[in-house]
Amino acid sequence: MKNTKERLSERVFLAIALSTLSVLALITVFIIAKGVPIIAKVGVLNFVFGMKWAPSQGSFGIFPMIVGSVSVTLGAAILGVPIAICCSIFLAEFAPVKLRNIFRPAIQLLAGIPSVVYGFWGVIFIVPFIRNYLGGPGLSILAGSIILAIMILPTVISITEVSILALPRYYKEGALALGLTHWQTIRSLLLPAAKSGIVAAVILGIGRAIGETMAVIMVLGNAVALPTSILDPVRTLTTNIGIEMGYASGEHQEALFATGIVLLVIIMILNAAAQYIVRRKRSR
């Protein structure tokens, strides 16, 4: 009797677990089925490296948006990663327990703020600030990078902190016993030892940044042209879908799905890289 019950519950859970997998498969198949025809028609190289996006005239080039995604994400990493790593070192090594108990939930809260709120805040505060003090229209790579830098903080901080805390205790004890100062121990021992975890954290943060849509639609300006400075407006792959899907039909819609394929490939590569790095560390 008990055995049947056990087996039944096992199967129910397996069925539910498989249904999540099937959703992934359904979405992937759908995106590919919808997007591949237009890529085939235009040609992969013309689609990925084409400079002109004018779906109503039959031009489907997404290169400016790839450049847009890369530049905004790179900006977010440059601004956000150093802050995140310093913050996690502080939390893992320096912060007194009381302070840590305030910081951790606060950072988790940062992850819980809806992206549209970040975008709204960016439009009201960051965009006018850039327009008034740095010039240009304000809607720019810089505005998007600042918003995304804040949005990736929770991801990068928590994974980095966990990977520092996961180091064996005797690493630190040994170093301190040998007469290294606390900072020397962190710099020359803990950080190098946690390196793969930190790299994985950064990659996951970048994945989060490159997939973000709502907040960046509001602050990037969405122009489909190669930027010449960080004060220029750009469009990312995600915002291209977000801003045009309402009106798209026919080939235009297919081209947006094709944009989704490119995005999916980029994010899959990033996630695979992060997992590879973490696994390599474990197997050692």
């Binding site: 109503s56 122009a223 045009e244 309402g246 009106y247 798209a248």
Partner: peptide, 30 residues
Amino acid sequence: REEGSGTRSAFTDLVMGKTTEITPRAIVQD
């Protein structure tokens, strides 16, 4: 406005004509 918008296509018809295009560097709002 973005590609596909009726307001954009009306503006294109009425102002830009057949030979000129709205610059791709224009900021796009939806």
